[in-house]
Simulated scan of single mutants.
Amino acid sequence: MKVNGRTPEAKAFRVERVVKATRELATAGGYEAVQMREVARVAQTALSTLYKYYASKDDLINAAVGSELNSLTEDVLRRPPRQRTAEGRAGEVFVRAYVAMVRDPGFAHAAMSAGNTVLEFDLDRVRHSEEINVKSHWSVTFTQIAAVQAWGPDNRCNPIQARALDMMETLWVASVVSWLNGDMSADEVKRRLRLAAKRLLAVDSAEPNGNSADVS
């Protein structure tokens, strides 16, 4: 997010400071601990100014998730996955992202709560969703990180690759939630992510041009 800095109010507003405060509060108490007033207090920012840039606590948490994804990108550039197969390298990206959640359960709880809230029931919206491909606020970036590690920066994902990566992200989210709820151990999550990557993403080697008999 860019702050133009033209007014004293804008100059006083520091995105990094707000994201840091959001992360600290989430780490300490999960989703419920992130409150707009508390973030403003910790970040030493006027509440009115905070609301000008972030409409809700979910927006704050999503900004923190974006920062985490930037860290993941830096990590895989610094320590590229060394698996021999594309599916192995992509799977390692999902595993590393999960390990980051394990290291900070409070932030994981906030991220999952903000990113996966079920909206009030609306039948028209459900019917409309059958006609469009709705992506989450951060899934594009997440899957792009895995795609680059799997097939290289110049690869343009074909329909099979893109769909398989989306399925991996969905599994990743569900697995983090299961771990947070105490339904699955950390080691089991990693095993499932690696197995899923091996099964889902290996389709690329069989159909390099995405010409599958059934991609509908």
Rank of each mutant, 00 (worst) to 15 (best):
R156D: 08
M167P: 04
A150M: 05
S136C: 03
V148Q: 10
D166Q: 07
V148S: 06
T143D: 13
M167S: 13
A174N: 11
C157G: 11
K135P: 07
A162F: 04
M168Q: 12
Q144I: 10
V134A: 13
Q149Y: 01
T143N: 15
N158F: 00
T143Q: 14
I145M: 10
N158H: 10
A147M: 10
H137L: 13
E169S: 02
T141V: 11
G152F: 00
A164S: 09
G152C: 02
A174R: 08
V134N: 13
F142Q: 12
V134K: 14
E169M: 02
C157H: 13
S136Q: 08
A150Q: 03
S175L: 03
C157A: 14
V134L: 11
Q161A: 03
F142V: 06
A164N: 09
A174W: 02
V177M: 05
C157S: 13
M168A: 05
L165I: 06
R163Y: 06
R163Q: 12
H137V: 14
N155Q: 11
S175D: 07
W151E: 07
S136K: 07
A174Q: 11
L165C: 03
R163I: 04
L171T: 12
Q149M: 09
S175G: 01
F142P: 06
F142S: 11
V176T: 06
G152P: 04
W172A: 03
V140Q: 15
L171N: 09
S139I: 06
S139T: 14
V134P: 09
A147G: 08
V140E: 14
S139D: 13
S175W: 00
E169G: 02
G152S: 04
L171F: 05
V148E: 12
V177T: 09
P153Y: 01
I160W: 05
P159Y: 02
A146F: 06
G152W: 00
E169N: 08
V148D: 10
V140H: 13
S136D: 14
W172F: 09
E169R: 03
A146T: 14
E169P: 00
K135T: 15
M167G: 09
S139V: 09
R156P: 02
E169T: 04
L171Y: 06
P153L: 01
T143V: 15
A146E: 13
I145T: 15
D154V: 02
S139G: 03
C157N: 14
V134M: 10
A162Y: 07
I145A: 08
A150N: 04
N155F: 13
Q161W: 00
Q149S: 10
T141S: 09
A146K: 11
D154E: 12
A146N: 12
A174M: 10
D166P: 01
W172L: 05
L165V: 04
